[in-house]
């Protein structure tokens, strides 16, 4: 349904806004994870067809008439990978923040500006 796609895009916008304006490093990473969740929502919502069930064959869903009874499996397959990649990136960013904090002792993005021009 499009309502969920809209919800997804709103989450992306909020995450982006948080990432662009909040100074604290943790908040930036939180913004990132919100963007990721938003994107995953959009992806899955695009695969959904009204009034259809999950693409898993069992007793009452035989493979023969599956074509007009199941939801699109590919988006959920892609999202699986996307979620784990999202986790990977978030974990790495957190480690970077830990190391930066260990070296510079500050958690403000504006303190890491010695590389410029």
């Amino acid at each position: 349904m499009t309502i969920i796609t809209i919800l997804g895009f709103l989450l992306i916008i909020i995450g982006l806004w948080g990432m662009l304006t909040r100074k604290h490093l943790f908040r930036i990473i939180l913004g990132f994870s919100i963007i990721d969740t938003g994107i995953h929502l959009v992806i899955v919502s695009l695969g959904y067809i009204k009034g259809r069930t999950a693409p898993i064959f069992d007793a009452d869903l035989s493979p023969i008439d599956a074509i007009n009874r199941i939801v699109d499996p590919i988006p959920s397959a892609l999202v699986l990978t996307a979620i784990v990649i999202g986790l990977a990136v978030t974990a790495l960013m957190l480690v970077y923040v830990i190391q930066m904090h260990r070296h510079k002792g500050s958690l403000e993005i504006s303190d890491y500006e010695e590389l410029k021009w």
Binding site: F32, Y96, H103, Y112, E114
Partner: peptide, 17 residues
Amino acid sequence: QDARSLGAGFKYIIAGG
């Protein structure tokens, strides 16, 4: 491992992300 390369790495991740 120094403040400059970590700062650069972090900026790279933000842009890459």
